[in-house]
């Protein structure tokens, strides 16, 4: 049991819209072990983003549980979940990861502030440097290329040394080279820091880079 960082158990979630109830997740269950990199595929609209949202504690399922290191996220209050997101879970999305009016380093520093850490500037610069952004530190997001922006987003997600990284289609808007680069950085981080990674993608090629692949089909999660 102790090797599992995340245990998802029987999640159900439906959306109500215009009097029509659309079930998205019907019985999603899976585990993520510590330090493993897992990919998640499925066609559009199938519920991957919903699942990520619940894992990050941003929304609550209709039924089911999500245990993060033994604690049920779905029963935590907002403050606890916020702390979780600040310190233990990092998220990188497809786009709009950065606050548009803060520079790259300021974005990273902000993440440190939420976790209540110190030495923000030094740590931020160090990590950005590691990700190859040493000379982009003071740039605003609109001056960064797509790839640079996603790497900066990665720095934001990793600065507080989270246990879990959720990456949602991070390369979808990048060209092939950059997409690959970003993913490799993620996987390196996973290996070097013992970071658990959940990689959502709809590219089978990218999915194959991970150790394990989960498929979301008909509201359920199937291993392959």
């Amino acid at each position: 049991m102790s090797t599992a960082l995340v245990e998802v158990d029987g999640l159900q979630k439906a959306y109500r819209e215009g009097g029509v109830t659309t079930p998205v997740l019907t019985d999603a269950s899976f585990t993520l072990a510590r330090g493993e990199a897992v990919s998640m595929v499925g066609s559009s609209g199938v519920g991957k983003s919903t699942l990520l949202s619940i894992l990050a504690g941003l929304s609550l399922p209709d039924a089911g549980a999500v245990r993060f290191d033994g604690d049920d996220v779905t029963t935590m209050d907002e403050v606890e979940r916020a702390t979780l997101r600040a310190r233990r879970i990092g998220v990188v999305l497809q786009r709009d990861n950065l606050i548009p009016f803060l520079t790259a380093v300021e974005n990273v520093e902000l993440a440190v502030e939420f976790a209540g850490g110190d030495q923000r500037r030094a740590r931020a610069i160090s990590l950005l440097d590691e990700l190859g952004l040493a000379d982009r530190v003071g740039y605003l997001p609109r001056r960064l290329s797509g790839g640079e922006a996603q790497r900066a987003a990665l720095a934001v997600a990793l600065i507080n040394g989270p246990d879990l990284l959720l990456a949602d289609e991070v390369g979808a808007e990048l060209d092939s080279d950059n997409a690959r680069r970003v993913l490799e950085l993620i996987l390196t981080a996973s290996r070097e820091r013992g970071l658990t990674v959940l990689l959502v993608t709809h590219s089978p090629e990218l999915a194959a880079l991970a150790e394990r692949c989960l498929h979301v089909v008909d509201g359920k999660v199937i291993e392959q």
Binding site: Q94, G146, G171, A172, E173, L174, D175, S176, A179, S203
Partner: peptide, 11 residues
């Protein structure tokens, strides 16, 4: 003719 254009997003 019906033509499909494929490719990654943002390209």
């Amino acid at each position: 003719v019906s033509l499909a254009i494929t490719g990654p997003s943002g390209c």
